[in-house]
Simulated scan of single mutants.
Amino acid sequence: MLTLLTATGARPSAWALCERWMAAQDYAGPVRWVIVDDGEVRQPVTFCREGWSLDVLRPSPRWKPGQNTQARNLLAGLAVIGNDARLAICEDDDHYAPDWLSHVAAELERAELVGEVRARYYNMATRRGRELGNTGHASLCCTAMRGAAIDTFRQACLRSPKFIDLELWRRHRSRHLFGGHRVTGIKGLPGRGGIGMGHKAAFTGTDDTAGSLLREWIGEDARAYG
C-alpha cells in the first residue's frame, strides 16, 4: 500500500485538479490518502476510486490569511501515519504525470527517502515557467519516504522551518534522487497563496503567454488550466 499525505484548504480549484491527477494514476495497488484540510470552508472532496481509502482531517484553529500552517497540518497527518507506511507527499496545487505513483513506489525500494530533482515551476497568474537546478534535494511535492525517513520528516515539521523539504533532505542519509520530470509545480492558481518562490509575482522564468511551454511539460493536461 502507498499512503499519500496532502495538506490543503481554501483552494477548491486546485483541489479539484488534484483529484483529477490522482484519478489518472496508473498505480494498481491500494492507496490510503490522508487529507488535512484547515480551510474555513471544507474542501469539496468528491474523489472515489476502487482500492483507495480517504481520511479527511480538519485541524483547528482554521487557517487565516497571512498564516503558514503547513508544518501544523503535516504533523496532523503524520499523527495517523505509522513508520511502516510508504508515504508520498501529494501537494494540492501541482501536476502529477499518470505514472508518478508507480514510479515513486519503485524508487522507494532503493532508499528510505526518494525524490525528483530539477524541479519545474509554472506560475499560471504570470504565465512564466522555470526549471530549477536543484540536484541535492527534491521539492516536497515530489518527495516520498518510508521507515526512519518518516521520523526525520516528523522532526523537520516540529522544527517548523519555512522550507521543510530542505530540512528533511539535509538531515536524512538513506536517500536517492532521480530525474524524469513527472511532477510540475503549478503556482498562482485561485485561492490561498503558497509560500514558495514560484508563487511570487516577481518569479522569473520563460514567458509563456501562448502556453507552449506548459504543453511541452505536461502535454494535453495543460488544457485543464485554461
Rank of each mutant, 00 (worst) to 15 (best):
112 E>K: 05
26 D>S: 14
218 I>R: 00
147 G>D: 06
22 M>L: 15
41 V>I: 12
160 S>K: 15
5 L>W: 08
76 A>P: 00
36 V>P: 03
117 V>K: 08
53 S>T: 11
9 G>D: 02
101 L>Y: 02
143 T>K: 03
220 E>P: 10
157 C>E: 02
11 R>D: 06
6 T>L: 07
7 A>L: 04
134 N>D: 02
41 V>N: 12
30 P>R: 07
210 A>K: 15
12 P>V: 04
18 C>Y: 10
77 G>S: 03
127 R>F: 09
197 M>C: 15
127 R>I: 08
141 C>N: 09
174 S>F: 06
114 V>C: 03
71 A>Q: 04
130 R>K: 13
164 I>S: 08
117 V>F: 07
226 G>Q: 13
222 A>S: 12
57 L>Y: 00
99 D>H: 10
17 L>A: 10
221 D>W: 05
14 A>S: 15
109 E>W: 10
78 L>V: 05
90 C>T: 14
111 A>I: 01
193 G>F: 06
162 K>M: 10
195 I>D: 12
211 G>V: 03
143 T>L: 09
14 A>T: 10
163 F>D: 04
68 N>H: 07
196 G>W: 12
12 P>T: 09
208 D>P: 00
159 R>S: 13
129 G>D: 02
102 S>D: 04
126 T>M: 12
98 P>N: 03
109 E>H: 13
33 W>F: 03
83 N>A: 15
201 A>P: 15
62 R>N: 09
69 T>H: 13
198 G>L: 08
183 V>N: 02
83 N>F: 14
27 Y>N: 10
128 R>P: 07
70 Q>S: 14
165 D>E: 13
92 D>H: 03
122 Y>C: 10
27 Y>I: 11
205 G>P: 04
50 E>P: 04
25 Q>G: 02
86 R>G: 02
155 Q>C: 10
70 Q>K: 15
47 F>M: 10
196 G>L: 12
119 A>C: 14
98 P>I: 08
9 G>I: 06
23 A>D: 12
199 H>N: 15
99 D>F: 07
121 Y>T: 13
28 A>T: 14
